[in-house]
């Protein structure tokens, strides 16, 4: 097993959950860029303020794929407020840890989700998340 990847990470890498594009998503989050490295897209369906479905597509390393997969798992069925509280730390914990040099991948997943929620709010209420801005690292340089 590659250095520092837990069994859980490898599980999600081997068989990622919720992969693929979503038809008519209610919100799309797109973060990262190919120049700096990883890219993530997250799609959500929202009904009555609850995330009923979440999917993703990722261009990235093992950790990027595993964190996308875990993030979509974690937020499904949660209200938007609850989902916003799912931090990158929570994803890392759920994956039983990530090597330090891969921690930034989990930030990307958090940003992708927030981006999707932001997109949903913009479309439905005309107002996005008040202070939302992707982390510097996921913006690319």
């Amino acid at each position: 097993m590659p250095e520092g990847y837990s069994e859980k990470v490898m599980d999600h890498f081997r068989n990622p959950h919720n992969v693929g594009e979503m038809k008519d998503p209610d919100g799309i989050g797109h973060v990262g860029n190919p120049v700096c490295g990883d890219i993530m897209e997250m799609y959500i369906k929202v009904k009555d303020n609850v995330i009923t479905d979440a999917k993703f597509k990722t261009f990235g390393c093992g950790a990027a794929i595993a964190t996308s997969s875990m993030m979509t798992d974690l937020v499904k069925g949660k209200t938007l407020e609850e989902a916003l509280k799912v931090s990158n730390r929570a994803v890392v914990e759920a994956l039983e840890g990530l090597p330090p040099r891969k921690l930034h991948c989990s930030v990307l997943a958090e940003d992708a989700l927030k981006g999707a929620i932001n997109d949903y709010l913009l479309k439905t209420t005309g107002k996005g998340l008040p202070d939302w801005k992707p982390h510097e690292e996921s913006e690319g340089h």
Binding site: F13, F59, G60, C61, G62, I65
Partner: peptide, 10 residues
């Protein structure tokens, strides 16, 4: 095209 090296190698 379109994919990342570490994932391929893994």
């Amino acid at each position: 095209e379109f994919i990342e090296g570490e994932s391929m190698s893994m």
